[in-house]
Computed example of a mutant assay.
Amino acid sequence: MIEYELVGNDLGEVRFAISPLNELVLSLRTLRDPGRFPLQLPWLRTTEPARAALRLDLLRALTNDALWTPDFLTPRPYTPLGRIEDEFAALTGTPGAVVRADLAEIHPAGLPPVLRGRPDRVLARVLSALREYWEACFEPYWQRMRTVLEADVVYRGRVTAQSGLAAMFADIDPQVRLEESVVTVRLRSDLSYRCSTAGRGLTLVPSLFSRRASVPISADEPPHIMYPARGLGTLWQTETTTPPNALVGLIGRVRARLMSLLETPTSSTELAVRLGVTPTAVNQHLRALRAAGLLLSARHGRSVLYRRSDLGDRLVRGAGPQGAVNSSSPILTTTAPRP
């Protein structure tokens, strides 16, 4: 069990951050054991041809059978929305002793041949392989991934505002609790330590490649908890929504479909992909619905996320039952700008 003791003002130092590097490294778990990540199988199938040209032996060696990853490759993010180039640049200065120790932590019986050698050369090989992996398998799809992560952060903020910090911690994972001023994370492994967050704070990092809450292997690492993000089930799916006829008659079919989808915060880009229309068209409808008081919007980083207002919720519920058909066909053709 891991215990993070929040001291004094550190109760106000709990913050959220999104890290493309963390997602990139945690996704290596899917290469080692795809069966544990069924919701990512559409992405794995689509990126399989691109992965064939990568250094898979090196990438797979960065995890072990317990799906641990080296701490130096999943550092605590220090900005709410990290950029992959900045995160790669920060890794280039990792001391050789840290590289050697962190790799030994996940391979205590001995390093795989691909990870042996001078630490500086090993680090260079690792970063080169990760850059190639990012460009081939992540960069084209990062905007969609990031939207789901941002929506999770907005949701957690709303839970905190409405129900308090303890309720928010309990909601991110059944094994996470805040009792008085101590955050506990119960793990399935024997890993155990207790440390104070004084002067360092505690960062919460949503992830699309975590099945449960996880923490750094070493107590010396800055305190942070990675946890599974909400909405992963819809990440690689198109969605055809059949809204209530009464709602269609009132505001039109496209806007009725949007209202049906916006129970949770979502960006216009994600809505366009799920509905198969252009972002421009979606934005026009979103502006009209927001002007009518049916939607709320919140900015997170460079994205604006929309969700139904209380009035919008009452309108959708009052229109009667609705049906929804979810297609499992992955939509992996979006092109994202460099984060």
Results as ranks from 00 to 15, higher is better:
33 D>K: 08
8 G>P: 00
152 D>M: 07
150 E>H: 11
226 M>W: 05
300 H>S: 15
95 P>M: 01
279 P>N: 14
114 V>F: 00
193 Y>Q: 04
175 Q>G: 15
39 L>Y: 03
57 D>I: 12
335 T>L: 13
292 A>P: 10
146 R>W: 08
21 L>D: 02
206 P>M: 07
5 E>K: 15
279 P>Q: 12
234 T>K: 04
217 I>C: 05
330 P>S: 11
189 S>P: 11
307 R>W: 03
275 L>Q: 10
174 P>C: 13
44 L>Q: 15
303 S>D: 10
116 R>A: 14
302 R>M: 13
225 I>C: 07
292 A>Y: 02
87 E>C: 02
238 T>K: 11
91 L>E: 03
32 R>V: 10
188 R>V: 14
257 R>I: 00
59 L>F: 08
243 P>K: 08
57 D>V: 12
315 L>T: 06
182 V>L: 10
335 T>I: 13
62 L>S: 09
338 R>L: 11
91 L>S: 07
137 C>I: 02
103 L>R: 01
42 P>Y: 08
71 D>V: 07
313 D>E: 09
244 P>F: 00
137 C>L: 02
199 G>F: 03
193 Y>W: 09
339 P>H: 04
136 A>S: 11
230 R>M: 11
230 R>P: 01
297 S>A: 15
123 L>W: 05
71 D>C: 10
47 T>F: 13
259 M>Q: 02
92 T>L: 05
177 R>H: 13
337 P>M: 01
138 F>T: 01
97 A>L: 09
319 A>K: 03
3 E>L: 07
296 L>Y: 06
76 R>N: 01
103 L>N: 01
144 R>V: 05
189 S>N: 15
288 A>H: 09
110 G>Q: 14
200 R>C: 04
282 V>Q: 03
122 V>F: 00
271 L>E: 03
162 Q>N: 07
55 R>F: 07
194 R>Q: 12
127 L>D: 15
12 G>M: 14
205 V>R: 01
245 N>V: 10
142 W>S: 09
229 A>N: 14
339 P>W: 00
85 E>H: 01
335 T>R: 14
311 L>H: 11
218 S>W: 12
311 L>C: 01
256 A>F: 07
196 S>V: 04
99 V>D: 01
102 D>C: 05
190 D>C: 06
153 V>F: 09
78 Y>S: 14
